[in-house]
Design a protein around this nucleic acid. Structure first.
Lengths: 210, 210
DNA sequence: TATTTATTGTAACAATAGTTACAATAACTA
DNA sequence: TAGTTATTGTAACTATTGTTACAATAAATA
Protein backbone atom coordinates (compact mmCIF):
# COMPACT_ATOMS: atom_id res chain seq x y z
CA UNK A 1 0.00 0.00 0.00
CA UNK A 2 2.80 2.43 0.89
CA UNK A 3 4.11 2.33 -2.66
CA UNK A 4 0.76 3.22 -4.24
CA UNK A 5 0.20 5.81 -1.55
CA UNK A 6 3.58 7.46 -2.13
CA UNK A 7 3.04 7.51 -5.88
CA UNK A 8 -0.34 9.24 -5.62
CA UNK A 9 0.11 11.41 -2.53
CA UNK A 10 3.87 11.53 -1.90
CA UNK A 11 4.26 14.99 -3.35
CA UNK A 12 1.40 16.28 -1.19
CA UNK A 13 2.02 14.82 2.26
CA UNK A 14 5.10 14.77 4.48
CA UNK A 15 6.68 11.43 5.41
CA UNK A 16 5.23 11.34 8.92
CA UNK A 17 1.71 11.70 7.57
CA UNK A 18 2.27 9.12 4.84
CA UNK A 19 3.53 6.81 7.57
CA UNK A 20 0.41 7.38 9.67
CA UNK A 21 -1.89 6.85 6.70
CA UNK A 22 -0.03 3.65 6.00
CA UNK A 23 -0.62 2.50 9.59
CA UNK A 24 -4.31 3.30 10.05
CA UNK A 25 -5.60 3.35 6.47
CA UNK A 26 -7.38 0.29 5.13
CA UNK A 27 -6.54 -0.57 1.54
CA UNK A 28 -9.42 -1.79 -0.61
CA UNK A 29 -9.91 -2.98 -4.15
CA UNK A 30 -13.41 -2.48 -5.46
CA UNK A 31 -15.29 -3.89 -8.47
CA UNK A 32 -17.23 -1.67 -10.88
CA UNK A 33 -20.81 -1.14 -9.78
CA UNK A 34 -20.04 -1.55 -6.08
CA UNK A 35 -21.92 0.93 -3.94
CA UNK A 36 -19.47 2.78 -1.69
CA UNK A 37 -21.81 5.26 -0.04
CA UNK A 38 -25.60 5.36 0.16
CA UNK A 39 -27.75 8.43 0.76
CA UNK A 40 -28.48 8.70 4.47
CA UNK A 41 -25.41 6.71 5.52
CA UNK A 42 -23.40 7.93 8.45
CA UNK A 43 -19.83 7.99 7.22
CA UNK A 44 -17.24 6.41 9.45
CA UNK A 45 -14.31 6.63 7.08
CA UNK A 46 -13.11 8.70 4.21
CA UNK A 47 -11.78 7.34 0.90
CA UNK A 48 -8.48 8.41 -0.68
CA UNK A 49 -8.61 7.38 -4.32
CA UNK A 50 -5.49 5.59 -5.56
CA UNK A 51 -6.78 4.29 -8.87
CA UNK A 52 -10.05 4.16 -10.79
CA UNK A 53 -13.13 6.36 -10.80
CA UNK A 54 -16.24 6.84 -8.69
CA UNK A 55 -19.62 8.09 -9.90
CA UNK A 56 -21.39 10.55 -7.60
CA UNK A 57 -25.19 10.57 -7.81
CA UNK A 58 -28.05 12.61 -6.40
CA UNK A 59 -31.59 11.28 -5.99
CA UNK A 60 -35.03 12.93 -6.29
CA UNK A 61 -38.10 12.22 -4.14
CA UNK A 62 -39.25 9.47 -6.49
CA UNK A 63 -35.93 7.67 -6.15
CA UNK A 64 -34.74 8.55 -9.65
CA UNK A 65 -31.05 9.38 -10.00
CA UNK A 66 -28.92 12.10 -11.53
CA UNK A 67 -25.17 11.97 -12.02
CA UNK A 68 -23.26 14.88 -10.54
CA UNK A 69 -19.71 14.01 -11.59
CA UNK A 70 -16.96 11.43 -11.62
CA UNK A 71 -14.15 11.45 -9.07
CA UNK A 72 -10.73 10.25 -10.20
CA UNK A 73 -7.42 9.27 -8.67
CA UNK A 74 -5.84 11.77 -6.33
CA UNK A 75 -9.28 12.98 -5.37
CA UNK A 76 -11.37 12.38 -2.33
CA UNK A 77 -15.06 12.83 -1.77
CA UNK A 78 -15.75 16.25 -0.27
CA UNK A 79 -19.27 15.29 0.66
CA UNK A 80 -17.69 12.60 2.78
CA UNK A 81 -15.36 15.12 4.40
CA UNK A 82 -18.31 17.27 5.05
CA UNK A 83 -20.34 14.47 6.59
CA UNK A 84 -17.46 13.15 8.68
CA UNK A 85 -16.48 16.49 10.12
CA UNK A 86 -20.07 17.53 10.72
CA UNK A 87 -21.14 13.98 11.63
CA UNK A 88 -24.20 14.30 9.40
CA UNK A 89 -25.72 11.90 6.87
CA UNK A 90 -24.52 11.51 3.30
CA UNK A 91 -26.41 13.60 0.77
CA UNK A 92 -25.15 11.58 -2.18
CA UNK A 93 -24.65 8.05 -3.47
CA UNK A 94 -21.20 6.89 -4.60
CA UNK A 95 -20.74 3.95 -6.97
CA UNK A 96 -17.47 2.57 -8.35
CA UNK A 97 -17.37 3.27 -12.08
CA UNK A 98 -14.26 1.20 -12.81
CA UNK A 99 -11.93 -1.16 -10.95
CA UNK A 100 -10.98 1.04 -8.06
CA UNK A 101 -8.23 1.05 -5.46
CA UNK A 102 -8.59 3.24 -2.41
CA UNK A 103 -7.48 3.78 1.16
CA UNK A 104 -10.09 4.29 3.85
CA UNK A 105 -9.16 6.72 6.63
CA UNK A 106 -11.05 6.55 9.95
CA UNK A 107 -12.90 9.74 10.88
CA UNK A 108 -11.03 10.29 14.17
CA UNK A 109 -7.71 10.51 12.36
CA UNK A 110 -9.09 12.87 9.74
CA UNK A 111 -9.93 15.35 12.45
CA UNK A 112 -6.77 15.11 14.51
CA UNK A 113 -4.56 15.35 11.42
CA UNK A 114 -6.20 18.69 10.62
CA UNK A 115 -4.35 20.23 13.57
CA UNK A 116 -1.27 18.02 13.38
CA UNK A 117 -0.37 18.24 9.69
CA UNK A 118 -0.46 21.47 7.73
CA UNK A 119 -0.35 19.53 4.45
CA UNK A 120 -3.40 17.54 5.48
CA UNK A 121 -5.28 20.72 6.28
CA UNK A 122 -4.29 22.09 2.92
CA UNK A 123 -5.37 18.90 1.19
CA UNK A 124 -8.78 18.93 2.87
CA UNK A 125 -9.39 22.57 1.98
CA UNK A 126 -8.20 21.99 -1.58
CA UNK A 127 -10.53 19.01 -1.87
CA UNK A 128 -13.45 21.12 -0.74
CA UNK A 129 -12.52 23.67 -3.36
CA UNK A 130 -12.23 21.07 -6.11
CA UNK A 131 -15.54 19.46 -5.28
CA UNK A 132 -17.23 22.84 -5.07
CA UNK A 133 -15.92 23.67 -8.53
CA UNK A 134 -17.08 20.33 -9.84
CA UNK A 135 -20.55 20.84 -8.37
CA UNK A 136 -20.74 24.22 -10.06
CA UNK A 137 -19.81 22.60 -13.37
CA UNK A 138 -22.56 20.07 -12.78
CA UNK A 139 -24.97 22.97 -12.29
CA UNK A 140 -23.78 24.50 -15.56
CA UNK A 141 -24.32 21.24 -17.40
CA UNK A 142 -27.80 20.68 -16.00
CA UNK A 143 -29.00 24.28 -16.19
CA UNK A 144 -27.40 25.58 -19.38
CA UNK A 145 -27.06 22.62 -21.74
CA UNK A 146 -29.78 20.91 -23.75
CA UNK A 147 -30.19 17.17 -23.40
CA UNK A 148 -28.25 16.33 -26.58
CA UNK A 149 -25.26 18.33 -25.36
CA UNK A 150 -25.48 16.83 -21.88
CA UNK A 151 -25.61 13.38 -23.43
CA UNK A 152 -22.51 13.87 -25.55
CA UNK A 153 -20.62 15.37 -22.61
CA UNK A 154 -21.64 12.38 -20.49
CA UNK A 155 -20.40 9.95 -23.12
CA UNK A 156 -17.05 11.73 -23.38
CA UNK A 157 -16.63 11.92 -19.60
CA UNK A 158 -17.43 8.25 -19.26
CA UNK A 159 -14.97 7.32 -22.00
CA UNK A 160 -12.37 9.46 -20.23
CA UNK A 161 -12.61 7.89 -16.78
CA UNK A 162 -12.74 4.41 -18.32
CA UNK A 163 -9.70 5.13 -20.50
CA UNK A 164 -11.58 3.67 -23.44
CA UNK A 165 -13.37 5.28 -26.38
CA UNK A 166 -15.82 2.36 -26.34
CA UNK A 167 -18.14 2.53 -23.37
CA UNK A 168 -20.18 -0.44 -22.18
CA UNK A 169 -23.62 0.84 -21.34
CA UNK A 170 -27.29 0.48 -22.29
CA UNK A 171 -29.55 3.34 -23.30
CA UNK A 172 -31.52 2.72 -20.12
CA UNK A 173 -28.36 3.12 -17.99
CA UNK A 174 -27.68 6.48 -19.59
CA UNK A 175 -31.28 7.59 -19.13
CA UNK A 176 -31.00 6.77 -15.42
CA UNK A 177 -27.78 8.74 -14.99
CA UNK A 178 -29.16 11.76 -16.87
CA UNK A 179 -32.57 11.65 -15.19
CA UNK A 180 -34.59 11.28 -18.38
CA UNK A 181 -36.30 8.45 -20.28
CA UNK A 182 -34.80 5.70 -22.41
CA UNK A 183 -36.75 6.79 -25.49
CA UNK A 184 -35.29 10.28 -25.30
CA UNK A 185 -31.76 8.87 -25.06
CA UNK A 186 -32.26 6.43 -27.94
CA UNK A 187 -33.57 9.27 -30.09
CA UNK A 188 -30.66 11.58 -29.33
CA UNK A 189 -28.06 8.80 -29.66
CA UNK A 190 -29.39 8.05 -33.14
CA UNK A 191 -28.96 11.71 -34.05
CA UNK A 192 -25.38 11.70 -32.72
CA UNK A 193 -24.67 8.61 -34.81
CA UNK A 194 -26.11 10.22 -37.94
CA UNK A 195 -23.90 13.25 -37.29
CA UNK A 196 -20.86 10.96 -37.11
CA UNK A 197 -20.10 11.65 -33.45
CA UNK A 198 -20.57 8.07 -32.24
CA UNK A 199 -21.03 4.48 -33.44
CA UNK A 200 -23.86 2.54 -31.82
CA UNK A 201 -23.86 -1.17 -31.04
CA UNK A 202 -25.80 -3.33 -28.64
CA UNK A 203 -24.58 -2.63 -25.09
CA UNK A 204 -21.78 -0.37 -26.23
CA UNK A 205 -21.10 2.98 -27.82
CA UNK A 206 -17.92 4.06 -29.55
CA UNK A 207 -17.09 7.74 -29.25
CA UNK A 208 -15.60 8.91 -32.54
CA UNK A 209 -15.27 12.62 -31.82
CA UNK A 210 -13.35 12.62 -28.54
CA UNK B 1 -18.97 46.55 15.54
CA UNK B 2 -18.03 44.33 18.50
CA UNK B 3 -21.61 44.28 19.71
CA UNK B 4 -23.04 43.08 16.40
CA UNK B 5 -20.17 40.64 16.08
CA UNK B 6 -20.75 39.17 19.53
CA UNK B 7 -24.46 38.84 18.90
CA UNK B 8 -24.00 36.92 15.66
CA UNK B 9 -20.81 35.00 16.35
CA UNK B 10 -20.31 35.17 20.13
CA UNK B 11 -21.53 31.64 20.71
CA UNK B 12 -19.20 30.32 17.99
CA UNK B 13 -15.88 32.03 18.60
CA UNK B 14 -13.75 32.43 21.72
CA UNK B 15 -13.07 35.92 23.08
CA UNK B 16 -9.52 36.13 21.73
CA UNK B 17 -10.77 35.45 18.22
CA UNK B 18 -13.66 37.90 18.54
CA UNK B 19 -11.12 40.46 19.69
CA UNK B 20 -8.88 39.81 16.67
CA UNK B 21 -11.81 40.01 14.28
CA UNK B 22 -12.76 43.28 15.91
CA UNK B 23 -9.24 44.60 15.32
CA UNK B 24 -8.63 43.61 11.72
CA UNK B 25 -12.17 43.25 10.35
CA UNK B 26 -13.65 46.08 8.33
CA UNK B 27 -17.31 46.77 9.02
CA UNK B 28 -19.44 47.64 6.00
CA UNK B 29 -23.04 48.56 5.35
CA UNK B 30 -24.24 47.75 1.85
CA UNK B 31 -27.26 48.83 -0.18
CA UNK B 32 -29.48 46.34 -2.02
CA UNK B 33 -28.25 45.65 -5.54
CA UNK B 34 -24.61 46.36 -4.73
CA UNK B 35 -22.25 43.89 -6.38
CA UNK B 36 -19.96 42.37 -3.76
CA UNK B 37 -18.10 39.85 -5.88
CA UNK B 38 -17.79 39.52 -9.66
CA UNK B 39 -16.95 36.36 -11.59
CA UNK B 40 -13.22 36.30 -12.20
CA UNK B 41 -12.37 38.55 -9.26
CA UNK B 42 -9.42 37.67 -7.09
CA UNK B 43 -10.75 37.75 -3.55
CA UNK B 44 -8.66 39.62 -1.00
CA UNK B 45 -11.09 39.46 1.89
CA UNK B 46 -13.88 37.27 3.15
CA UNK B 47 -17.29 38.52 4.29
CA UNK B 48 -18.90 37.55 7.61
CA UNK B 49 -22.60 38.33 7.32
CA UNK B 50 -24.02 40.23 10.28
CA UNK B 51 -27.38 41.21 8.85
CA UNK B 52 -29.21 41.01 5.54
CA UNK B 53 -29.01 38.62 2.60
CA UNK B 54 -26.79 38.08 -0.42
CA UNK B 55 -27.82 36.53 -3.73
CA UNK B 56 -25.31 34.12 -5.29
CA UNK B 57 -25.42 33.83 -9.09
CA UNK B 58 -23.81 31.69 -11.76
CA UNK B 59 -23.41 32.82 -15.39
CA UNK B 60 -23.53 30.94 -18.70
CA UNK B 61 -21.34 31.58 -21.78
CA UNK B 62 -23.83 34.08 -23.15
CA UNK B 63 -23.70 36.12 -19.96
CA UNK B 64 -27.16 35.09 -18.78
CA UNK B 65 -27.53 34.49 -15.05
CA UNK B 66 -28.93 31.81 -12.78
CA UNK B 67 -29.55 32.16 -9.06
CA UNK B 68 -27.91 29.48 -6.92
CA UNK B 69 -29.12 30.50 -3.47
CA UNK B 70 -29.39 33.26 -0.91
CA UNK B 71 -26.91 33.59 1.96
CA UNK B 72 -28.22 34.95 5.25
CA UNK B 73 -26.85 36.25 8.54
CA UNK B 74 -24.41 34.01 10.34
CA UNK B 75 -23.26 32.65 7.01
CA UNK B 76 -20.21 33.32 4.96
CA UNK B 77 -19.50 32.67 1.31
CA UNK B 78 -17.78 29.31 0.90
CA UNK B 79 -16.81 30.11 -2.66
CA UNK B 80 -14.92 33.01 -1.20
CA UNK B 81 -13.21 30.76 1.34
CA UNK B 82 -12.35 28.49 -1.47
CA UNK B 83 -10.94 31.25 -3.61
CA UNK B 84 -9.00 32.87 -0.80
CA UNK B 85 -7.39 29.70 0.44
CA UNK B 86 -6.64 28.48 -3.07
CA UNK B 87 -5.93 32.00 -4.34
CA UNK B 88 -8.03 31.34 -7.42
CA UNK B 89 -10.67 33.45 -9.18
CA UNK B 90 -14.29 33.67 -8.09
CA UNK B 91 -16.64 31.31 -9.91
CA UNK B 92 -19.75 33.21 -8.84
CA UNK B 93 -21.29 36.68 -8.61
CA UNK B 94 -22.57 37.98 -5.27
CA UNK B 95 -25.14 40.78 -5.05
CA UNK B 96 -26.68 42.27 -1.92
CA UNK B 97 -30.36 41.35 -1.86
CA UNK B 98 -31.29 43.54 1.09
CA UNK B 99 -29.66 46.17 3.29
CA UNK B 100 -26.66 44.23 4.45
CA UNK B 101 -24.15 44.58 7.26
CA UNK B 102 -20.96 42.59 7.13
CA UNK B 103 -17.40 42.35 8.35
CA UNK B 104 -14.61 41.85 5.85
CA UNK B 105 -11.70 39.67 7.00
CA UNK B 106 -8.33 39.93 5.18
CA UNK B 107 -7.13 36.69 3.57
CA UNK B 108 -3.88 36.49 5.56
CA UNK B 109 -5.77 36.36 8.86
CA UNK B 110 -8.19 33.75 7.57
CA UNK B 111 -5.31 31.41 6.96
CA UNK B 112 -3.36 31.98 10.15
CA UNK B 113 -6.50 31.67 12.29
CA UNK B 114 -7.04 28.19 10.85
CA UNK B 115 -4.06 26.97 12.87
CA UNK B 116 -4.47 29.34 15.79
CA UNK B 117 -8.16 28.95 16.62
CA UNK B 118 -9.91 25.60 16.69
CA UNK B 119 -13.31 27.32 16.60
CA UNK B 120 -12.33 29.19 13.44
CA UNK B 121 -11.25 25.95 11.79
CA UNK B 122 -14.57 24.42 12.78
CA UNK B 123 -16.47 27.44 11.46
CA UNK B 124 -14.69 27.29 8.12
CA UNK B 125 -15.32 23.57 7.71
CA UNK B 126 -18.95 23.98 8.79
CA UNK B 127 -19.36 26.80 6.26
CA UNK B 128 -18.03 24.57 3.51
CA UNK B 129 -20.50 21.92 4.54
CA UNK B 130 -23.42 24.35 4.58
CA UNK B 131 -22.58 25.79 1.19
CA UNK B 132 -22.12 22.32 -0.27
CA UNK B 133 -25.55 21.35 1.04
CA UNK B 134 -27.04 24.51 -0.37
CA UNK B 135 -25.45 23.88 -3.76
CA UNK B 136 -26.91 20.38 -3.79
CA UNK B 137 -30.32 21.82 -3.04
CA UNK B 138 -29.84 24.21 -5.93
CA UNK B 139 -29.10 21.20 -8.14
CA UNK B 140 -32.30 19.52 -6.93
CA UNK B 141 -34.31 22.60 -7.71
CA UNK B 142 -32.87 23.03 -11.18
CA UNK B 143 -32.81 19.37 -12.15
CA UNK B 144 -35.95 17.96 -10.53
CA UNK B 145 -38.50 20.76 -10.44
CA UNK B 146 -40.56 22.15 -13.29
CA UNK B 147 -40.45 25.87 -13.94
CA UNK B 148 -43.72 26.63 -12.12
CA UNK B 149 -42.44 24.92 -8.97
CA UNK B 150 -39.06 26.63 -9.23
CA UNK B 151 -40.83 29.95 -9.64
CA UNK B 152 -42.98 29.51 -6.55
CA UNK B 153 -40.00 28.34 -4.49
CA UNK B 154 -38.07 31.40 -5.68
CA UNK B 155 -40.88 33.74 -4.65
CA UNK B 156 -41.11 32.17 -1.21
CA UNK B 157 -37.32 32.26 -0.69
CA UNK B 158 -37.22 35.89 -1.74
CA UNK B 159 -40.07 36.78 0.61
CA UNK B 160 -38.23 34.95 3.37
CA UNK B 161 -34.88 36.74 3.10
CA UNK B 162 -36.63 40.08 2.70
CA UNK B 163 -38.84 39.42 5.73
CA UNK B 164 -41.83 40.56 3.71
CA UNK B 165 -44.60 38.64 1.96
CA UNK B 166 -44.70 41.37 -0.67
CA UNK B 167 -41.66 41.25 -2.92
CA UNK B 168 -40.62 44.14 -5.12
CA UNK B 169 -39.61 42.69 -8.46
CA UNK B 170 -40.49 42.74 -12.16
CA UNK B 171 -41.25 39.67 -14.26
CA UNK B 172 -38.07 40.38 -16.19
CA UNK B 173 -35.99 40.33 -12.98
CA UNK B 174 -37.40 36.93 -12.09
CA UNK B 175 -36.77 35.61 -15.60
CA UNK B 176 -33.13 36.70 -15.30
CA UNK B 177 -32.65 34.97 -11.95
CA UNK B 178 -34.30 31.75 -13.14
CA UNK B 179 -32.54 31.76 -16.53
CA UNK B 180 -35.68 31.78 -18.64
CA UNK B 181 -37.72 34.35 -20.58
CA UNK B 182 -40.07 37.03 -19.30
CA UNK B 183 -43.03 35.61 -21.23
CA UNK B 184 -42.67 32.25 -19.53
CA UNK B 185 -42.59 33.91 -16.10
CA UNK B 186 -45.62 36.12 -16.84
CA UNK B 187 -47.54 33.05 -17.98
CA UNK B 188 -46.71 30.99 -14.90
CA UNK B 189 -47.28 33.91 -12.52
CA UNK B 190 -50.75 34.35 -13.96
CA UNK B 191 -51.46 30.67 -13.29
CA UNK B 192 -50.22 31.02 -9.70
CA UNK B 193 -52.53 33.99 -9.25
CA UNK B 194 -55.51 32.09 -10.64
CA UNK B 195 -54.72 29.27 -8.20
CA UNK B 196 -54.76 31.75 -5.33
CA UNK B 197 -51.07 31.37 -4.45
CA UNK B 198 -50.09 34.97 -5.16
CA UNK B 199 -51.51 38.43 -5.87
CA UNK B 200 -49.94 40.29 -8.80
CA UNK B 201 -49.40 44.02 -9.04
CA UNK B 202 -47.11 46.20 -11.05
CA UNK B 203 -43.55 45.82 -9.73
CA UNK B 204 -44.60 43.68 -6.80
CA UNK B 205 -45.99 40.30 -5.93
CA UNK B 206 -47.73 39.32 -2.73
CA UNK B 207 -47.22 35.73 -1.63
CA UNK B 208 -50.49 34.45 -0.14
CA UNK B 209 -49.53 30.83 0.45
CA UNK B 210 -46.29 31.19 2.44
C1' DT C 1 -50.46 67.67 -19.59
C1' DA C 2 -48.20 65.29 -23.45
C1' DT C 3 -44.76 62.16 -24.46
C1' DT C 4 -41.77 58.59 -23.57
C1' DT C 5 -40.42 54.45 -21.24
C1' DA C 6 -41.13 50.34 -18.48
C1' DT C 7 -44.06 46.73 -17.40
C1' DT C 8 -47.49 43.35 -18.12
C1' DG C 9 -50.91 40.46 -20.87
C1' DT C 10 -51.72 37.48 -24.46
C1' DA C 11 -51.84 35.02 -28.90
C1' DA C 12 -49.64 32.06 -32.03
C1' DC C 13 -46.24 29.22 -33.05
C1' DA C 14 -41.67 26.42 -32.69
C1' DA C 15 -38.56 23.48 -30.31
C1' DT C 16 -37.51 20.30 -26.91
C1' DA C 17 -38.48 16.76 -23.84
C1' DG C 18 -41.52 13.23 -21.84
C1' DT C 19 -44.99 9.25 -22.53
C1' DT C 20 -47.24 5.24 -24.41
C1' DA C 21 -47.24 1.61 -27.31
C1' DC C 22 -45.45 -1.87 -30.01
C1' DA C 23 -42.22 -4.20 -33.20
C1' DA C 24 -37.65 -6.07 -34.24
C1' DT C 25 -33.66 -8.25 -32.89
C1' DA C 26 -29.86 -9.82 -30.13
C1' DA C 27 -28.52 -12.52 -26.21
C1' DC C 28 -29.34 -15.62 -22.75
C1' DT C 29 -31.30 -19.94 -20.79
C1' DA C 30 -33.98 -24.05 -20.21
C1' DT D 1 -33.03 -25.40 -30.64
C1' DA D 2 -37.13 -23.16 -28.68
C1' DG D 3 -38.59 -19.96 -25.68
C1' DT D 4 -37.66 -16.10 -22.81
C1' DT D 5 -35.68 -11.77 -21.64
C1' DA D 6 -33.12 -7.56 -22.54
C1' DT D 7 -32.18 -4.10 -25.68
C1' DT D 8 -33.03 -1.00 -29.35
C1' DG D 9 -35.89 1.46 -33.01
C1' DT D 10 -39.67 4.12 -34.11
C1' DA D 11 -44.24 6.27 -34.46
C1' DA D 12 -47.62 9.14 -32.53
C1' DC D 13 -48.96 12.00 -29.24
C1' DT D 14 -48.75 15.26 -25.03
C1' DA D 15 -46.64 18.59 -22.09
C1' DT D 16 -43.50 22.00 -21.19
C1' DT D 17 -40.65 25.60 -22.33
C1' DG D 18 -38.90 29.09 -25.48
C1' DT D 19 -39.73 32.76 -29.20
C1' DT D 20 -41.83 36.50 -31.75
C1' DA D 21 -44.96 39.93 -32.06
C1' DC D 22 -47.92 43.32 -30.56
C1' DA D 23 -51.34 45.65 -27.55
C1' DA D 24 -52.62 47.77 -23.14
C1' DT D 25 -51.51 50.27 -19.29
C1' DA D 26 -48.97 52.30 -15.59
C1' DA D 27 -45.24 55.25 -14.32
C1' DA D 28 -41.75 58.53 -15.13
C1' DT D 29 -40.35 62.79 -17.19
C1' DA D 30 -40.06 66.64 -20.25
Amino acid sequence: MLKALTEQYGYLFEDDLLQEINEVGIYKEIDPGTKLIEIGDYIKSMPLLIEGAIKILREDEKGDELILYFIEQGDTCAMTLSCCLGSSKSEIRAIAETDTKLIMIPVEKMESWLSKYKTWQKFILQSYHDRMTELLEAVDTIAFLKMDERLFKYLKDKAMVNHNEVIIVTHQDIANDLHTSRVVISRLLKKLEINGKIKLSRNNIKILDL
